[in-house]
Simulated scan of single mutants.
Amino acid sequence: MSLPKRVVLVGPMGAGKSTIGRLLAKELGYQFIDSDRLIEERCGANIPWIFDVEGEDGFRQRESAMLAEMSEVQQTVLATGGGAVMKLENHDYLRRDATVVYLRTSVEQQVERTRKDRNRPLLQNDDPEAVLRNLFRVRDPLYRDLADIVMQTDRKSPRLVVRQLLNRLKPRSPRHKRRVKKEGRNHA
C-alpha cells in the first residue's frame, strides 16, 4: 500500500480542515491547498463579498471549477469548504485519485470554534447554532458517503488528529505486515 496521491479533507466549518490540513501536508511532504483561500486569492475578494455579490450559487460555481482543477494536482492535501459536498458533480472531483477524510465535529464544537469568525456568511444571522444544526443534518450523510476515513476532532488537538491520520494513511512496513500475519495465524 502506498500513500494516496491526494488527501481531501471534508467536513463542516470549524472541524479543523485548514489547521489539520496544513500540519498533515507538512508531515506527508505534500502541498497544502485551502480551496476557500484559493478562490479568494483568484477573485481578489473574500468569501462574504462573493456571497453578497454573486450569491451562494455564484460561489458554488467558482468552488466547483476550483475543485475540478485541483482534482488533477497530485501530492496535495486539499481542505474543502463545508458546502463543497452539496453539488453532486463535486463528488467525482473530491474522490479522484484521493483518500477522502471526513473531519467530524459536534455542533457544540462548531459553535465554539466559529463564534467570533465574521468570514462565514452562512452564520451571519441571529441563530448561528440553528444554522449549524441544520447544515449538519443535511451534510453529515454526504460527508460520510464520500469518506474513506472518518476522524472525530472534538476535544482533540490538531497534532493528535494528524498523528492518528498518519497511522491510517501511511503504509505499514513489511516487518509490521509479517507480525500481523503471524498474530492472525496464532489466533486461528
Rank of each mutant, 00 (worst) to 15 (best):
L88Q: 14
E108I: 03
F59R: 02
D126H: 11
N125G: 11
V111T: 08
A79V: 01
V73N: 10
I149F: 01
D52A: 14
D127L: 01
R178W: 13
I33P: 10
S106G: 10
R118C: 14
G16P: 02
G55Y: 12
D126P: 03
R163E: 10
K181P: 03
I47A: 10
R137Y: 09
R144V: 02
P158W: 09
E41W: 14
D36L: 01
M151L: 07
L142G: 01
Q61E: 14
P141Y: 10
R6E: 02
I20P: 00
G82L: 01
A25D: 02
R139C: 07
S106F: 07
Q152C: 10
L3T: 01
G29Q: 04
V150T: 08
G55C: 04
K156D: 05
L169E: 06
K181R: 14
L28H: 04
R178L: 15
H176I: 10
P121Q: 08
T76F: 00
V7R: 04
V150R: 00
E72I: 06
M1K: 12
K87F: 09
L9E: 02
D117I: 03
D97N: 10
R62V: 06
A188Y: 13
H187N: 06
M151S: 12
I50F: 09
E63N: 02
N90F: 01
L135D: 08
K182I: 13
K17L: 02
